[in-house]
């Protein structure tokens, strides 16, 4: 392991889903992830932010090895993901943990907690039941679950949402991962529990020096739980920057409208309408030419944005944005 080299690198990553009619006639492709480049360092926490259908969940599944990339590659710790087979692939799966959105759905309802936490260990060849039990108890302590004995023999539906999500996190930690991918880990939980779970993830990430990639649609929670943000729109990353930089100085018009749509809680919110771009995210089957946000963009430059895809600009130090507005010819 060489320190400083990224843990995970995605280059020119595409994940398309073919649409077929009658089971064989190809009628098109849903371009869920459409040319994404990024690198995640060891021990950093990043957030992928975007609306539903922007490809963030497909990206997560591609990184988890659940979808095969159509084009491009994912390199994890120097190994290319698509070349991994058999044992090497199992090893990779053990090194990437997964925390899902719906904690209840993520736990098999017919297994008690002990059984379902045993599963990953059994699959990864931990034969000794006592060793398994010991590892399970250790992670349950790590996710701050109390009354472990009682919880181990319960079924998922007997636990509260917060407890369920802790079990999901515990399961993701069981195999000693180097990275955790959390897909909207708190969006189904109550407001009072959300912060607790996010804090827990953040603390575990720091203690274990994990790479944490969490996917969310909620910009307001991001500041305290991520180091960097990637903003996705229609299958692409349109802007990326460290968290404070991005939230305080958004550069891409899409990020700007996302931030304009949410405001800190205030009684005056009820008095004014928010600035919302019209229209809806484009179909991933047939994305618009040029910049994908141009049909909704209030600052779109006719003849440029609707024709040519914007390259990556760096309007500020360490802050990247794919938007023609940063092109010097147009001024910024």
């Amino acid at each position: 392991m060489t320190a400083g080299s990224p843990l995970l690198q995605a280059s020119n990553l595409h994940t398309w889903f073919e649409l077929r009619q009658w089971g064989f006639l190809r009628v098109g492709s849903v371009r869920a992830v459409d040319g994404v480049n990024f690198a995640l360092a060891r021990g950093e926490s990043v957030a992928f932010v975007g609306e539903s259908g922007c490809g963030k969940s497909s990206l997560a599944r591609t990184l988890l090895g659940l979808h095969r990339p159509t084009r491009g590659e994912v390199t994890f710790d120097g190994e290319e993901l698509s070349t991994l087979k058999g044992k090497a692939r199992q090893r990779y799966l053990a090194r990437v943990g997964y925390v899902q959105q719906d904690p209840f759905g993520a736990l098999p309802p017919f297994m008690d907690v002990r059984r379902l936490l045993n599963e990953p260990l059994i699959i990864h060849g931990v034969r000794d039941p006592a060793a398994r039990e010991e590892r399970i108890r250790r992670v349950l302590e790590e996710v701050r679950l109390t009354r472990v004995d009682e919880i181990l023999s319960k079924f998922p539906h007997m636990l509260s949402g917060g407890q369920q999500q802790r079990i999901v996190i515990a399961r993701a930690l069981l195999l000693e991962p180097a990275m955790i991918i959390a897909d909207e880990p708190v969006s189904m939980l109550d407001a009072s529990v959300r912060v607790e779970i996010l804090n827990l993830l953040r603390n575990i990430q720091r203690e274990r020096e994990l790479t944490l990639a969490f996917i969310t649609h909620d910009l307001s929670t991001v500041r305290h739980f991520a180091d960097r943000i990637f903003v996705m729109y229609a299958g692409r990353i349109v802007e990326q920057a460290p968290v404070d930089e991005l939230l305080d100085h958004p550069q891409h018009p899409y990020t700007q409208s996302l931030l304009a749509a949410i405001a800190d809680v205030d009684a005056d919110n009820a008095l004014e309408e928010r600035d919302v771009p019209g229209g809806e995210p484009p179909s991933l089957l047939n994305p618009p030419p040029g910049c994908r946000f141009h049909p909704r963009c209030p600052k779109a430059i006719a003849g440029t944005c609707d024709v040519r895809e914007p390259p990556r600009f760096a309007p500020r130090e360490g802050h990247y944005s794919d938007c023609w507005l940063h092109d010097e010819r147009h001024g910024s």
């Binding site: 912060v195 307001s220 500041r223 939230l247 809680v265």
Partner: peptide, 9 residues
């Protein structure tokens, strides 16, 4: 509850 609300700024 108000204290648990994340605030952007």
């Amino acid at each position: 509850l108000m204290d648990s609300v994340p605030r952007l700024h």
